[in-house]
């Protein structure tokens, strides 16, 4: 199958290893990867800030470029939700409405794609550590993906998954929210980190690097030993 990867800007710039791991996994499964390098931002930051015309200006090239794509896989629940759930709202009543709905139907979050579309749960990975999983809100609620990442982790050799009580509680990143309301964002992150640390896990894993960027920033500042990793980075460990 030909799969189009949508790499959000922060994965491109800060966490390229996540993208590389996704490529490695999908190619190992025999698929051909296409990466539209001319796409940078899905438009979520201005969209979330209320600047919808600006968001449409960023989203239009994405719609156009991905018009003929097959399955589109996104390694971040947040940007995935933008394409899948919010483009149809953003373009409601606009000439591109039909295109936005069509795109929505073929967008998949990475772990959901592996489990639900490809039927793959065991990638032969091995990671002999204790991990706890953070559900990114958009992956969880806009893309309805509670089970797929856990299915994948379950099949990693040596990995012990310990659920934290606050697994489904927002980490407090929220894009521009993290700086506009820094004190609230930080308090939310502290709740998350404390809950994750309580499990005694070595790693906090998520399928959304944007949450992890915020959480890692907090963990490092607080000097907590807990490390963060994207799910894809675990699935390539052997």
């Amino acid at each position: 199958m030909k799969i189009t990867l949508f790499i959000p800007c922060f994965i491109d710039a800060i966490y390229p290893k996540v993208g590389m791991a996704m490529v490695q996994i999908l190619e190992k499964l025999g698929h051909t990867i296409e990466f539209p390098g001319e796409l940078t931002c899905c438009g979520q930051p201005p969209f979330n800030s209320g600047y919808w015309p600006e968001a449409r200006r960023l989203a239009r090239p994405v719609l156009k470029r991905l018009e003929n794509a097959g399955a589109i896989v996104i390694g971040s629940g947040s940007c995935g939700a933008m394409l899948k759930s919010f483009y149809p709202q953003l373009f409601a009543g606009e000439p591109e409405e039909a295109a936005a709905n069509a795109l929505s139907a073929k967008c998949f979050e990475f772990s959901g794609f592996l489990v639900n579309q490809l039927g793959v749960t065991d990638l032969g990975a091995s990671f002999p550590h204790k991990v706890t999983f953070h559900d990114g809100c958009h992956g969880l609620r806009e893309m309805l993906g509670k089970q797929p990442p856990r299915e994948l982790l379950k099949h990693v050799r040596g990995l012990e998954l310990v659920e934290m009580t606050e697994a489904e509680t927002c980490c407090g990143f929220g894009g521009t929210f993290a700086t506009k309301f820094a004190s609230i964002s930080t308090a939310m992150g502290e709740v998350k980190c404390a809950s994750a640390a309580e499990t005694g896990a070595d790693y906090m894993v998520s399928n959304d690097s944007s949450c992890l960027m915020h959480l890692k920033g907090l963990l490092d500042r607080q000097g907590r030993p807990l490390k963060t990793l994207h799910l894809a980075e675990i699935l390539v460990q052997s």
Partner: peptide
């Protein structure tokens, strides 16, 4: 604006 839009 004071929301991370988590959807809970």
């Amino acid at each position: 604006s004071a929301s991370s839009l988590c959807g809970a």
